[in-house]
Nucleic acid binder design. Structure first.
Lengths: 162, 162
DNA sequence: GAGTTATGTCAGCATAGTTGACATTATGCA
DNA sequence: TGCATAATGTCAACTATGCTGACATAACTC
C-alpha cells in the first residue's frame, strides 16, 4: 500500500499509520475545541449553530445574510431559524441595507457582544494554552496543515477573514 | 487585553488575532476533513456517526461496546441505534465475550472492512496531500497543537490508540 | 414592465444527539 | 446461595440542526 511510498526516509511522515494518527488527532482535538463553548451555550439554550452565527457576525459586522450563508455552508432555512431566535432574543440586529435595500446587514447588539466575548474567552483560552505549550514553530505548522486541508473555495473564505 | 501579554516578540503568535485565526482554521479545516467521507456515506445511507463507529471498530478489532462509548463520548442509546443498523446490514459482527459473557466484542465483517477502506482512502488522501504540501516539520507542529488542545481524558484515549 | 435577486417563511422530513425507565444476562462478592 | 452490580439492549419522547420544496415580498436591473 502506501508504505511503499515511504522509500525516501524524508517521507516517513506519510505512512498509513501516521495519517491515521492525524485523522484521530483531528477527531479528538475538535471535541476539545468545542467542549467549552458548548457548556456555555447550553446554559443559554443555544447550540453550536448559534455560536457559529455569532462568531462570524462579530467577525464581519454588517455582513449580509447571503455572505453568512456562504461562510457557514448551510441552507437559508437552517440559518434563518437560528438568526430569528438571535434577533428575537436581542443578540443580533438586522438592518435594511442602504446601498441595496433588499439586503439585511447583521450586527451584534451589546447583549450579543457580551455572549460572543464569553464564548470567545473560553475557546481562546484553550487555544492559547495549546499554542503556548506547543510553541511558535508548532503553531505555524498547525496552521499550514489546516489550510492545506480546506476545500479550495473554503480556503478563499478563510483568507478573506484575515 | 491579551495584546499586553505579547510584550516579548516571541509571544506574537499568542495575540487575539492569531488565536481567532486558529479558531477559524479549525472550523474550516474540519469541514474539509469530513467532506469526502460524507459524500460516500450518503450513497450508503449512513452518516458521520456510522463512520466513527466503523473507524474505531476497525482500529480496535474486538473492542467492547463500553470501550466504544468512552471513545465516542455519546450515550449508549445513541450508539446502539447506529450499531444495530451496522449489524443488521452485515458490516459489524457482535460476538459474546469469552472471558466475560456480558460483553460484546465488535469486529468488522468483510463488507464492513470494504466500506472502512473506501472511507479511509478518501480521508487519508486529503490528509496525505495536506501533509505533503505542508512538509514534515509542519505536520509535527500540527500534531503537537492538536494533542495540546484535547481534553486530558481524551488525550489519554488518543495515546491509547497509538 | 419583466426578470432576477435577497430575504423570509411554512411544512415536512432525517440524523444524531439527549434523558429516563426498564429488562436481561452475567459476574463477583459476602 | 443469593444479592448487588455491571454490560448491554430497548422503548419512548424530546431537541438541535441539517435538508428539500414551495411560495411570498420587496427591491434591484435592464
Amino acid at each position: 500500500m502506501s508504505e511503499s511510498r515511504a522509500r525516501g526516509d524524508s517521507l516517513l511522515f506519510l505512512t498509513d499509520a501516521q495519517l491515521r494518527r492525524g485523522i484521530e488527532a483531528m477527531f479528538f482535538a475538535y471535541r476539545g475545541f468545542t467542549a467549552d463553548p458548548d457548556r456555555i451555550l447550553d446554559q443559554y439554550g443555544y447550540g453550536r449553530a448559534h455560536h457559529r452565527a455569532i462568531h462570524f457576525i462579530n467577525r464581519w459586522p454588517g455582513t449580509t445574510v447571503n455572505n453568512l450563508l456562504a461562510i457557514l455552508g448551510v441552507t437559508k432555512q437552517s440559518l434563518n431559524r437560528v438568526l430569528r431566535t438571535l434577533v428575537e432574543d436581542g443578540l443580533v440586529e438586522s438592518a435594511v441595507g442602504t446601498r441595496d435595500r433588499r439586503e439585511r446587514h447583521l450586527t451584534l447588539t451589546e447583549k450579543g457582544r457580551a455572549l460572543e466575548t464569553e464564548l470567545n474567552e473560553v475557546q481562546t483560552a484553550r487555544m492559547r494554552d495549546a499554542f503556548r505549550r506547543a510553541g511558535p514553530e508548532a503553531v505555524s505548522g498547525f496552521r499550514t496543515v489546516l489550510e492545506e486541508m480546506m476545500d479550495e473555495d473554503l480556503k478563499h473564505l478563510f483568507e478573506g477573514t484575515a
